[in-house]
Nucleic acid binder design. Structure first.
Lengths: 348, 348
DNA sequence: CTGTTAGCGCCTTCAC
DNA sequence: GTGAAGGCGCTAACAG
């Protein structure tokens, strides 16, 4: 059982003092060491396969070289893609990513958020179930000068008290609604996929308003609330089709792609054809959309831009000398309607 | 900026010594403290919202209450589901999960594996790209008495030197092949989805042997090698269909569900109908399979059983007094062929 | 450049 | 039950 190699061992082997070794290995600027001793130290480290203890370093310095990411559901391709991209983005800047997975439980979310305070990370990126519900917590974090970036949809009336990167659905939704109306659709459904206890958010209302502006009365729009899983979306829509055949929509928008896939499946099992009998539009545009047997139209969120912006905002705040001085910043990315096979003209 | 609450603060508030507070809060058995002082300490901790520093604790004790999980690709639903389940399993036992994502890069995999040695975790679960390639590393870990569980497919000839939880594909594959042969299929393709530099593994050979046993000559089987993404599987199969129409299979087995979905898409774009012109079988049975517009037949791995077994093996090794004494253990779970819409009788 | 010293927060031993 | 002391591995400040 060979013991762990410590900085001291490296220093001894190189014939220098520990602090010299420390300054050299950490490439601190004010090192007066000669090129030659530097080389000796690096070589000693390499020969011994020295790996500094992150724990000790963190305890001493209060820096962790890690950022936290809170997400709702790791099994949702949207979030796993997001985590993947963010990891790549922060890694380039020398940070590890620690994923905190709520599993669509509000209780767990509250817990994890509270844990973040003592969680040993330099900063966090949060995709909360509802930014308004957690506004008090965010305000508290802002006051504590904790580096935080919030991700999410929709531009709130009151500005968010911390840095934020948001998707604006008006553009994507407008284009989707325009397309559907031009194709002659008159009766709509919105599938709102929610975790237990989660509120609707802005999208159903936005959807209604946009349709209203195009002459579709609210009575022609059904808002279906389902759980966050594919199964749940499938079941809910299947039930609706069975119980209210009179209200069968010809076009359906879902809160995310998983829900859209579930609803599309329910339609197929009910004997409908997509898109002939029902047009389906999802949200997020997960990579799978373009490869489904019936490709899924979707309103794309700009993953790469979002994660890059989040990484930039967060790390600049972490590394800036006086992060306190920086006011909350906000970046907004438009969404893009991407039509595919699942959308077609209304029958009739 | 309110300072961090330390153990010392709790002790002071409760009017006890730090070591007393430590023994009480950690519920050490040989505490001679009275119920009353215990209560005082707990209350003080609660009032101050005391959160012990994991870093300090880890530095002192060498225990991290964290286990690492190395996976190939977080954006693949198979791995994200695996991570999700494993996280749940280890959390019950008081451990956090740290996900190390290779992003299907062998270079990154080697890197992360090397990092594991100094990565501050109590043990790790590894889903490697190839257990044979990493056998030397595994042997080294075993010698270093590092708690490790390997996950994967196929039962190796030489036993793996560390604990292992494996999926045995013979059962699932046998049933799938039987089903396809009974449906009259004579010409097959296998889509081998691999990261760059990754070797085929046992499955293509197993597939060939099983078909041979049922009278299908190797000349009737094409093995297509594609990258690990859906896109790549789709492209590869599309090219094959275009370039070799003479060798068009009536049944296709893919190395995983993503590849199956990609191949199915290629078939559809080539004007084929699934399953009338082509039957498709995936592997893993990710939750989405049952909700695709054409539901995907798949050979299921037992996620829950696998992750539970891995957690049990790993944690028992971590917590056993003399883990050194335990010989490498191996658990094997059979796979289950799950037919769905994507499989049907051969034409003709 | 060296060597010493101090301390991050916690756990553990030891005498009392 | 107390109080002091040592140390996990590292960083940082100091005088030399």
């Amino acid at each position: 059982m060979n013991k762990r190699i410590r900085l001291k061992d490296v220093a001894e082997r190189a014939g220098v003092a520990v602090n010299t070794a420390s300054t050299i290995l950490n490439r601190r600027p004010n090192s007066w060491a000669s090129k030659e001793t530097e080389a000796r130290v690096f070589q000693a480290a390499r020969e011994l396969d020295y790996r500094p203890s992150k724990t000790a370093r963190a305890l001493r310095s209060g820096r962790y070289h890690t950022i936290g990411l809170l997400i709702q559901d790791l099994t949702n391709p949207f979030f796993s893609t997001l985590a993947d991209e963010l990891e790549a983005a922060v890694e380039e800047r020398g940070y590890d990513l620690l994923v905190e997975n709520c599993r669509s439980s509000l209780v767990r979310e509250k817990h994890l958020l509270a844990d973040l305070e003592d969680l040993e990370v330099d900063g966090s990126v949060l995709w909360l179930s509802d930014n308004e519900v957690f506004r008090p917590d965010l305000t508290e974090m802002a006051n504590a000068k904790r580096p935080v970036v919030v991700l999410g949809n929709g531009i709130p009336d009151k500005p968010i008290p911390v840095d934020a990167v948001l998707s604006d659905f008006t553009q994507g939704l407008t284009d989707a609604v325009d397309a559907l109306c031009q194709l002659g659709h008159k009766r709509f459904a919105f599938v709102s996929a929610l975790a237990e206890g989660q509120a609707d958010g802005q999208r159903p209302r936005l959807f209604q308003e946009m349709l209203a502006a195009r002459g579709i009365p609210a009575s022609n729009i059904d808002i279906l609330r389902t759980g966050h899983t594919v199964e749940s979306a499938c079941e809910t829509f299947a039930n609706f089709l069975k119980k209210r055949p009179d209200k069968r929509p010809t076009a359906l928008l879902a809160m995310n792609d998983l829900a859209a896939i579930g609803a599309m499946r329910a339609a197929i099992e009910a004997g409908l054809t997509v898109p002939a009998d029902l047009s389906v539009v999802g949200v997020d545009d997960v990579p799978l959309c373009s490869f489904l047997p019936i490709t899924l139209s979707s309103i794309r969120q700009r993953y790469k831009k979002i994660t890059r912006a989040a990484a930039d905002l967060l790390i600049s705040r972490i590394e800036s000398a006086d992060a306190a001085a920086l006011p909350p910043r906000q970046e907004i990315f438009a969404t893009v309607y991407t039509p595919r096979e699942s959308v077609g003209p209304a029958k009739g």
